[in-house]
Design a binder for these strands. Structure first.
Lengths: 153, 153
DNA sequence: TATTGTTATACTCTATAACTATA
DNA sequence: TATAGTTATAGAGTATAACAATA
């Protein structure tokens, strides 16, 4: 079925919300296709990558960074623990906090995950110049920053 | 809890996938906050907007444009029919297809929906120049186009 | 044989409320 | 009183398979 040829999509194509939706699906499809069936979710790679750079970080801090509510961090981190990639350790200072650390297998998974994500981003931005890629990141960050001004905390 | 001050987020902040995720959440939060509780979903505004510009378009064509599988178009359009905004009419030519048309109330809802979406986009891009906004749209479109090259149909 | 609309269903992702233990 | 982690649960959102009617 031809669609874009016969249909007036001018309004739709000019919407950032719509293009953002399409871009997210495009990224998700490419990642799923190339990372294979037993892959970690992107957000889980983000998690172990952040734990690698910040050993002992708490689930609350990670959730706040990644936009995952505390309740959902439990199963997300729990899956990483079950896979033997992450260890929960009681904090010496604040005994409410559970520090997150990578196991040796977690170190490997983090390195592999970053590689897979990196290749995925390279693939998707292959038609963009380095300047375009920086511009895209900057523009997206400015959208995110703007939302702090238009909606209450 | 301070987070970004004590945590190394350099890797994360450089990922387009992550910024896309944050930007999508930012847009969604702003829309939900300003459009009120009885709002149509953005994709539903896209639907009636597209029907307004292309009266008689089929659900299959719309789904293909909006990235919604046929099965889910049923409930999506069904809700618009229940709200009295959209009418399903049998096609004269191909008797498999159901043509979608707006009711008078649908015309009003489409106009209002476009206004709400338009103000939402204006608000989110208030710190962007017109050129920046065009650049963002162009870069997102190029990501979407790229995915057609990296993943099979 | 392919496509449209449809039903049924399952899976992923996200959000809320309430509990506990600490602070 | 406020916060970290947890549990349970509900709600969006998305995906697949199968069917009838039609092309």
């Amino acid at each position: 079925m031809r669609v874009r040829d016969d249909v007036d999509t001018e309004w739709l194509d000019g919407l950032i919300g719509y293009q953002l939706r399409c871009a997210t699906r495009a990224m998700s499809t490419d990642y799923a296709w190339h990372a294979g069936p037993d892959r970690l979710r992107p957000v889980q790679v983000h998690l172990i990558g952040m734990i690698a750079d910040n050993p002992g970080i708490s689930a609350a801090a990670l959730g706040s960074l990644l936009g995952v509510v505390r309740a959902n961090m439990v199963t997300l981190v729990g899956d990483l623990v079950e896979r033997g990639l992450v260890e929960r350790r009681a904090s010496d200072g604040d005994r409410r906090v559970v520090e997150l650390h990578l196991t040796p297998a977690g170190d490997e998974a983090a390195a592999l995950g970053r590689k897979v994500i990196g290749e995925h981003e390279e693939r998707m931005t292959a038609r963009l110049s380095a300047a375009d890629r920086r511009r895209l990141l900057d523009l997206l960050r400015r959208l995110v920053a703007r939302s702090a001004e238009t909606t209450p905390p």
